[in-house]
Design a protein around this nucleic acid. Structure first.
Lengths: 165, 165
DNA sequence: GCTACATGGTTGACATGTCATCCAACGGTG
DNA sequence: CACCGTTGGATGACATGTCAACCATGTAGC
């Protein structure tokens, strides 16, 4: 397939440096945050983002597919994870009356308690390891870049490989 | 425990925007790259980085612990992954004579063939989705930030929770 | 009102990652 | 040399993620 015309331009030093250091940073940063969160609160990073999303929604409830889109998760991953969280009593599923295929996901009181306990420590760690190390201009650059890349990714959802036959 | 003195300063809008868009970008970008690589070459992203590291080393060989440090992987993850790659014939383990605890990891000819076939398409995708969307100044900002954060993470390896007594 | 396809969600088999633990070989120290 | 903490690495049990079906509904087209 389309390696096709022209040489497959390699990354130059500047590009390589940005790309690989970013990858490595994310790997290690996520690992560090996940360890802190699990150690201090018994929540995984994934539990945490689910609870943040739900507690931020009206009535602490959200349709499963909305949640999946918001987090960028595949539906099967979401389903499996919700099953585990439900077993631990952090969330509950309810049937949706208006669309009988669908399901609501709701935070339980216990889920609320868990995230309220976990949030301060987690945010402090995000600050200590990342946010507080960046200048306002750097923060804006990061946000702009990330949003631009996300737009590209969004734009090509639902059309196969771009160099399609 | 140590949420301690002072209010746990939340993230403001600018900080929140940078942090969460970066997280989401990485999630989706990695997923997209992994799918392309697997579809077109039968390699996972993890296979790919291991092979890149090895083929870049003298004689296509590296001590396992060096590889682990370079990639930022835990040793058990590395060990498991090398076992799988070895079963598929991409790498091989050899005993190290000078330090009899240690092991060398070597790319096989088949491993070389696999990565040479995979690299152009993967690099093209990294360009298309990320690198080519950024200005040189943005690339430099990313690299500087990532290296700064990595330095923080490095600095605190091997001393327990930072708010230590 | 069918047929046909799209959507929301679940499931099971399998790939991958993590933690805790273990082991053997190093590297000092006395 | 005997002791002892450290290091490089492997392993097993378990948590998590992915892929590929599958099912039940919804929504058009005619």
């Amino acid at each position: 397939m389309g390696v096709g015309a022209g040489s497959p331009r390699w990354l130059d030093d500047r590009e390589q440096r940005a790309w690989s250091s970013l990858q490595l940073m994310h790997l290690r940063l996520d690992a560090a945050l996940a360890r802190q969160l699990l150690r201090d609160s018994g929540l995984s990073l994934q539990d945490y983002v689910v609870l943040v999303a739900l507690t931020g929604a009206p009535e602490g409830r959200m349709r499963a597919f909305e949640l999946g889109r918001l987090l960028g998760w595949e539906k099967s991953r979401l389903s499996h994870h919700l099953t585990r969280m439900a077993q631990r009593g952090l969330v509950a599923r309810e049937l949706c009356e208006v669309d009988r295929r669908g399901a609501w996901v709701v935070v339980t009181p216990e889920g609320r308690r868990a995230i309220e306990a976990a949030a301060p420590g987690h945010v402090a760690e995000v600050r200590r390891l990342f946010v507080d190390r960046l200048s306002p201009r750097e923060l804006d650059t990061i946000a702009a870049v990330a949003e631009r890349v996300l737009a590209v990714l969004d734009a090509e959802e639902g059309k196969g490989a771009p160099p399609g036959p």
